[in-house]
Amino acid sequence: MEGKNQTVLLNDNVTIPCKVPGSTPLNIKGMGVIWYRKHQADETEHKVFEMYGNHQKAFRPGASVSPAGLEKGDASLHLSGVQLRDAGEYRCEVVVTPEKAQGTVVLKVLAFAKCTLFREQATAKDDGDKYILCKASGFYPKDINITWHIWTQENPQGQKISEGITNGPAIKNEDGTFNKTSHLRLEHNVVTCQCVIRHISLPTSCKSNFFPSRIGSEMGNTWGTTDTCITVGFIGAGILMGLIVCWIRITSAPDMEEILTESEIKLDGVRQKILQVAQELFREEMH
């Protein structure tokens, strides 16, 4: 296990491997296991878990080594609810008298970037221009890339642009994750604009589309993996059916504002479901 890297998403559980050499079953009463963690910014080691004889102690809440697994030569460390502070180099030290062995694993913690286009920002400001805001939130590590693409009547093939864009700094949240925003000034001839977010936590680029000709409309995030696109396609069909039902209700019901509010709430729930699907597919790819 020497020098291996392992990646886990924020708040997930993780098992860091450590195999005990020699024949099994082992007499765990006559052996010891100690796990240490060394943070990237701190060269000193800190105990995470120790076990010898009938003694077990977790220095990090939720840390454990399975006694049943240890009898079979598996001294892997289990951590529940991983946080950003859990990242670092882990060292497993196993003593089976008179033998001693050790190994290291570097654990990297990622926070999944959430991508959003804010339609309420696509309104006229004092200068008469119109803007759209793209936001990446809750991501870690800090490095992230946000770009814009537009499609115009003169260029229906689309192009990446660099003008009319204002990128904000990465703002650190209380939990250690980051948020970042990017504003795009809309030109009158833009048919479609697309915000593209790239981050190490994303299995592929996160893309959000906006249609200036339909101010007030918003399309959810899309991911490029085949499985996700299929899933999002089914969910998108559900959104379409929901909109049809809402349209029928609006044409026949007197309280349109109430119906529109209800529709927005349902659409927000669908968007959250799409995000959950993408996260689950990413976890499957890591495993």
Rank of each mutant, 00 (worst) to 15 (best):
R185P: 01
L186D: 02
L186E: 02
L186N: 03
L186P: 02
E187A: 11
E187Y: 03
H188P: 04
H188E: 14
V190S: 04
V190C: 06
V190L: 05
V191P: 00
V191W: 00
V191D: 00
T192F: 07
C193Q: 01
C193E: 01
C193P: 00
C193N: 00
Q194K: 09
C195Y: 00
V196I: 08
V196G: 01
V196M: 02
V196Y: 00
I197Q: 05
I197W: 06
I197N: 04
R198C: 02
H199V: 03
H199M: 05
H199K: 05
I200T: 03
I200F: 00
P203I: 11
P203M: 13
P203A: 15
P203K: 10
S205K: 10
K207T: 09
K207S: 05
K207H: 03
S208L: 04
N209Y: 09
F210P: 02
F210K: 02
F210S: 03
F211G: 01
P212E: 07
P212K: 04
R214W: 12
R214V: 14
I215Q: 07
I215S: 09
I215M: 11
G216W: 03
S217L: 05
S217K: 06
E218M: 08
E218C: 07
E218R: 13
E218K: 11
M219K: 11
G220T: 03
T222N: 05
T222G: 04
W223P: 00
W223I: 02
G224K: 14
T225W: 06
T225C: 09
T225M: 13
T228Y: 12
T228I: 13
T228A: 13
C229Y: 11
C229G: 10
C229Q: 12
I230W: 11
T231V: 11
V232N: 10
G233W: 06
G233V: 06
G233N: 12
I235L: 13
I235C: 03
G236T: 15
G236M: 12
G236N: 15
A237V: 00
A237M: 07
A237Q: 12
G238H: 08
I239F: 13
G242I: 04
L243P: 01
L243R: 15
L243A: 09
L243Q: 14
L243T: 08
L243C: 11
I244N: 10
I244E: 11
V245D: 09
C246G: 08
C246Q: 08
W247V: 12
I248R: 12
R249D: 07
T251H: 12
T251F: 13
S252Q: 09
S252N: 06
A253R: 15
A253Q: 15
D255W: 06
E257G: 03
E257H: 04
E257N: 06
E258Q: 15
E258T: 14
E258K: 15
E258M: 11
I259E: 14
I259P: 09
I259R: 10
L260D: 02
T261N: 13
T261I: 03
T261Y: 08
T261W: 05
E262Q: 09
S263K: 09
I265C: 00
D268W: 14
D268R: 15
D268T: 13
V270C: 02
R271Y: 14
Q272S: 06
